[in-house]
Design a protein around this nucleic acid. Structure first.
Lengths: 120, 120, 120, 120
DNA sequence: GTGGTCTAGACCACG
DNA sequence: GTGGTCTAGACCACC
């Protein structure tokens, strides 16, 4: 996995977890990879993964069991969707629209790009 | 002016400058507000405005004249558009498309929101 | 049995044993449930119960007979009371008083809650 | 400041902050000591203080301003009281009552100790 | 084995 | 100066 410089690594790992859950690769009650496993696989420090997992726990996406591991929470999908949707509608979309206006980019241009990339 | 927590303040100020230029409120060769004036108006630390202006200078959007002030560069509009477009196409759009997929948000949903906000 | 997240499970199990002894459900020289039985009943890892029993043995609450099982020690009630009392007076009470002060909670409020729950 | 072994240091520091706020030594909008200052004063690692402050920020007790510092939030006292009270009523009190029963400790005994310590 | 905490030290962005 | 993040490595309690 490669990391961008624009966002904290631990949040990018959180996004990765989000994806696994939304794509149903990790389901409710599943044990997710341990902090150490994940750290080795992603080539990062265990503390960084730990930070991600703590953050996800606060958001009720995962749950910890002492000495056992982390598990996907009940309704994790709903929680993830809620977080993502909130973020998208309140933060991303307004910015997008504003930028499109400034760039004088039409909605049809947007659609074209949208469909084009669908083909990839 | 209000600042989001998601982006550095000095970049949000840069966006503000971009807007003034694209909306032709500040034109080529115009003197733009001094660092101090800007800092007072936006209620931020002068260093922050200074950083914005330096960043804009690197991007050839503004130009400094020692002891006089900052001025809008020749073809600033083109430069701004180029920067914005590059950023939008390479960084923003892919992220948007990915999020739309994960949220199972349709292009028609996007269009609806686009037109709705047009009315505001 | 449900466990809180605030205290180690093996100590919560110890509290459970304490209760059985104080309530005289388990008396001197009685054989207590085996580690395995207990683990199944409480739905925990056998190691966890084992740790509880070892801890209780150190405190002279139970005694082990190799190949036979664990038994309630002589004067276990006294030992339990001593441990609990010590803990309560030296650790719990000071904390309670301090919290009551900070919350500006009156002793009469405490009494009210004490009597109310008596009715349950 | 001395730390107990029973509770994480970063949470004990949080308790310390709680006290300052409840005792009105730190008021709304006050800047609180920087992470580094606090770390030196308490003889702990800056990361530990940072952890405390992050935790407090999640609880809406303090607020961060980039490059400036941490500040006491609006209504921090209410938030602290709410957290403390919740904790006390739901977790501490039931345990106390149960222990009092097991120790056959009377409410009058409790009162005596309460008043006695008031005299100190 | 698991997670939780802490230290030491570093670098970065920001004001 | 400030906070934010990350690494490296350690020790602990717990299962």
């Amino acid at each position: 996995m490669e990391f961008h410089n624009t966002k904290a690594i631990y949040l990018q790992i959180a996004d990765f977890v989000f994806e696994q859950i939304l794509l149903k690769k990790w389901k409710e009650d599943d044990k997710i990879p341990s902090v150490r496993e994940m750290a080795i696989e992603l080539q990062v420090n265990p503390n960084t993964v730990s930070r991600t997992y703590l953050w996800l726990e606060e958001k009720n996406i995962v749950q910890t069991q002492r000495g056992v591991g982390y598990f996907v929470e009940k309704d994790a999908i709903q929680s993830v969707l809620a977080i993502k949707k909130e973020e998208f509608l309140k933060i991303d979309l307004p910015g997008i629209f504003k930028t499109m206006d400034l760039l004088e980019m039409d909605i049809t241009d947007f659609e074209k790009r949208y469909h084009k990339r669908k083909l990839l």
